[in-house]
């Protein structure tokens, strides 16, 4: 089943065609990597999917419903979770409270004026933290966490509304190499266990080729190749674009 389908996406800034007629799709349970050199249009593409940018042309559908031009918070309500390139968590809250926030929002309990927030959905939050391996740090403030741990917290937050699609912008940026693989393995396992579609952009080719089920490659705003890792690895144009960096 197709979770996300992008057809003929276009976006221009001034005279520059940042994204030009790009189409791709992600199936439920599938991990799709979007790669390309700097300026290839990955981030623009990504921000159209998550609602921060409006495409000039083309359609974007999540489970058959259009999401183009919807606000990020509406897209989230439809069942799309996301993590950021630079982690975005609530620094003045504990790890558990961060996840509780997402749960409170999911159950539409945020407007409550007189219940005690820290007591809501506690077990469920700890369950999510358990899944990302952060349960033992639940009481710590996010402001003092190591970067790798923050990424895990983000993942737990993203999982809070039982998403059917997970958007991850450079999930391993800023992490130590060992941590990277660990986090992506965790993500891939979660995706397969819960039948979640995952779309992520990434610089680290090891991470991409080890954990992605499928890869789309962008260059200068256009889609130049897509397929399973072996297929992409063999593609001549991809090799040309990356010029040996893939062998590194």
């Amino acid at each position: 089943m197709t979770a996300l389908a992008a057809r003929n996406l276009c976006k221009a800034y001034g005279g520059v065609q940042a994204v030009d007629d790009v189409s791709f799709s992600v199936a439920a349970g599938e991990v799709l990597a979007m790669i390309g050199p700097n300026g290839a249009g990955k981030t623009t593409c990504f921000n159209m999917v998550n609602g921060q940018l409006l495409p000039d042309k083309g359609t974007l559908e999540f489970e058959g419903r259009s999401i183009a031009g919807r606000a990020p918070r509406e897209i989230w309500r439809m069942g799309v979770g996301r993590t950021f390139q630079i982690t975005a968590t609530f620094a003045s809250m504990t790890v558990r409270e961060n996840v509780q926030m997402a749960l409170l929002s999911h159950y539409r309990r945020l407007a409550s004026l007189f219940s005690v927030a820290a007591r809501q959905h506690r077990e469920e939050a700890e369950g999510l933290l358990e899944r990302v391996g952060m349960r033992d740090q639940a009481e710590r403030a996010c402001a003092v966490l190591a970067y790798g741990d923050l990424k895990r917290v983000e993942l737990a937050i993203a999982l809070a509304n039982a998403p059917r699609l997970l958007l991850m912008d450079e999930p391993t940026a800023g992490m130590a190499p060992g941590e990277r693989s660990e986090l992506m393995q965790l993500t891939a396992d979660l995706a397969r266990d819960s039948n979640i579609a995952v779309l992520f952009t990434e610089h680290d080719m090891d991470v991409v080729f080890t954990h992605a089920d499928r890869i789309v490659v962008l260059a200068q705003g256009r889609l130049i190749a897509q397929g399973d890792p072996a297929h992409v690895r063999a593609d001549a144009r991809v090799r040309e674009v990356y010029l040996g960096s893939m062998h590194a």
């Binding site: 990020p72 509406e74 609530f90 409270e97 945020l110 407007a111 005690v116 509304n161």
Partner: peptide
């Protein structure tokens, strides 16, 4: 201490994240 107050702090701490978990 209520979810409402937490939502205010969430918006202050990270507007981006707040938006991404459905907080208006």
């Amino acid at each position: 201490y209520a979810p409402f107050g937490y939502a205010l702090r969430a918006v202050r701490d990270s507007p981006l994240r707040a938006d991404a978990i459905g907080i208006d």
